[in-house]
Amino acid sequence: MSGICEGRVVVVTGAGRGLGRAHALAFAAEGARVVVNDLGVGLDGTPGPDSPAAQVADEIRAAGGEAVAHGGDIATTEGAASLVAAALESYGRLDTLVNNAGFLRDRMLVNLDEDDWDAVLRVHLKGHFLPLKHAAAHWRAEAKAGRTPVARIVNTSSGAGLLGSVGQGNYSAAKAGIVGLTLVAAAELARYGVQVNAIAPAARTRMTERTFAETMAAPAGGFDAMAPENVSPLVVWLGSAASAGVTGRVFEAEAGRITVMEGWHPGPTADKGARRSPAEAGETALKLLAQARAPGAVYGA
């Protein structure tokens, strides 16, 4: 029986471990040929001794699927371009890009070094932009040649990007930026047959195990609510042709729960029709805030 991604070629970044590995295996199980990208770095972004991308590709092939490994740095133009090239050279096409790569360098803001800020923004935000840019350029060329693709991009944000997270100013800013990038890309790329969505997952990975060590432990039996594999079915569906018409959306995915996130919408408003004094502006703001929905709590506050 064919899976919902039969015949599709899928690229997954940061696919050597955790969520990315789960996504790669899930796509392969649904018939996709997978390009498994991972730079093989540690939790803080420093180089590691092994090649997790090759291990995952081997795992897919051992199960009867098709996969190739890619170890390039997708936060560089060269690495992102070679990632798209790897799909085209290996399988002759590219249908889905899943941007997942990232790492943490957590600090309270007053202790956050510029290097830690730059490193996290580079991998999460630039590491989403560059693969997206190169994949989109390929799909635009295909569309202009009369071969409009059924293309999909799935970006990875976080609850930290939606609500903020204490001690993660760099990570929260990057993940919030990914939401903005997703909305712009969905609007710009629709004409070329490309749908762009984002997920805000919660699962037990290397990046979360220290933060949620007690609540995210794997159970002795039964449903493992925090297993990264729980997030992958939604990602696979978003990356498939079956998700036609769904674009510019952000989904939370955790355990068996899927939530469509509703972003900024105008709330209570007041228009004087003329300039206010600072005191008047403050009085009006307080009245409007009393009518407005309270924002969600910042994680860790």
Score class of each variant (00 low, 15 high):
residue 195 Q to K: 12
residue 168 Q to W: 03
residue 263 G to Y: 04
residue 43 L to Y: 00
residue 55 Q to L: 07
residue 213 A to S: 12
residue 191 R to Y: 07
residue 218 A to E: 13
residue 144 K to F: 01
residue 263 G to T: 04
residue 5 C to V: 09
residue 73 D to A: 06
residue 172 S to I: 12
residue 202 A to G: 14
residue 175 K to Q: 10
residue 53 A to S: 10
residue 167 G to R: 15
residue 164 G to T: 15
residue 280 E to S: 05
residue 164 G to F: 10
residue 116 D to N: 08
residue 23 H to T: 07
residue 151 A to T: 13
residue 211 T to M: 15
residue 284 T to H: 06
residue 240 S to Q: 03
residue 264 W to K: 14
residue 32 A to H: 00
residue 48 G to E: 09
residue 296 G to M: 09
residue 253 A to C: 11
residue 240 S to G: 03
residue 21 R to V: 08
residue 159 G to E: 14
residue 3 G to T: 02
residue 60 I to D: 03
residue 168 Q to L: 02
residue 190 A to E: 12
residue 41 V to I: 07
residue 57 A to Y: 07
residue 139 W to D: 13
residue 54 A to M: 01
residue 128 H to E: 07
residue 47 P to T: 06
residue 119 A to K: 15
residue 91 Y to K: 02
residue 49 P to H: 01
residue 185 A to M: 03
residue 134 H to K: 09
residue 101 A to G: 12
residue 253 A to S: 14
residue 178 I to V: 15
residue 153 I to N: 10
residue 297 A to Q: 14
residue 22 A to R: 14
residue 77 T to H: 12
residue 30 E to P: 00
residue 219 P to G: 07
residue 248 G to L: 07
residue 90 S to V: 01
residue 74 I to Q: 06
residue 160 A to S: 15
residue 164 G to C: 13
residue 21 R to E: 15
residue 39 L to E: 04
residue 91 Y to R: 01
residue 139 W to F: 12
residue 60 I to W: 07
residue 92 G to S: 05
residue 188 E to V: 03
residue 100 N to E: 09
residue 249 R to K: 14
residue 7 G to D: 03
residue 224 D to R: 06
residue 268 P to V: 08
residue 64 G to K: 06
residue 63 A to V: 04
residue 237 W to V: 10
residue 34 V to Q: 03
residue 150 V to M: 12
residue 168 Q to E: 13
residue 105 R to G: 03
residue 298 V to E: 03
residue 40 G to P: 11
residue 75 A to C: 02
residue 107 R to D: 06
residue 294 A to D: 12
residue 249 R to I: 01
residue 99 N to I: 03
residue 21 R to W: 07
residue 14 G to E: 00
residue 206 R to N: 13
residue 88 L to S: 02
residue 183 L to T: 09
residue 133 K to L: 12
residue 168 Q to P: 09
residue 243 S to W: 05
residue 46 T to R: 02
residue 44 D to Y: 00
residue 148 T to R: 15
residue 57 A to E: 03
residue 61 R to D: 13
residue 298 V to C: 06
residue 59 E to G: 08
residue 54 A to H: 06
residue 15 A to T: 05
residue 248 G to A: 08
residue 82 S to C: 04
residue 102 G to D: 00
residue 238 L to F: 06
residue 47 P to G: 05
residue 26 A to I: 06
residue 32 A to G: 00
residue 5 C to D: 12
residue 235 V to D: 00
residue 231 V to G: 01
residue 146 G to R: 14
residue 253 A to T: 14
residue 25 L to M: 13
residue 22 A to Q: 13
residue 283 E to T: 13
residue 206 R to S: 09
residue 56 V to Q: 04
residue 92 G to N: 09
residue 211 T to V: 13
residue 32 A to W: 01
residue 41 V to M: 00
residue 207 M to R: 14
residue 83 L to Y: 00
residue 17 R to Q: 12
residue 40 G to A: 01
residue 26 A to S: 11
residue 60 I to Q: 05
residue 274 A to F: 10
residue 244 A to F: 08
residue 68 V to E: 04
residue 224 D to W: 10
residue 111 N to L: 11
residue 123 V to A: 15
residue 172 S to F: 02
residue 186 A to Q: 05
residue 203 A to R: 11
residue 191 R to D: 14
residue 283 E to H: 10
residue 232 S to Y: 11
residue 93 R to K: 06
residue 185 A to T: 13
residue 241 A to G: 08
residue 45 G to I: 01
residue 172 S to Y: 05
residue 190 A to C: 09
residue 146 G to E: 04
residue 86 A to F: 01
residue 287 K to F: 11
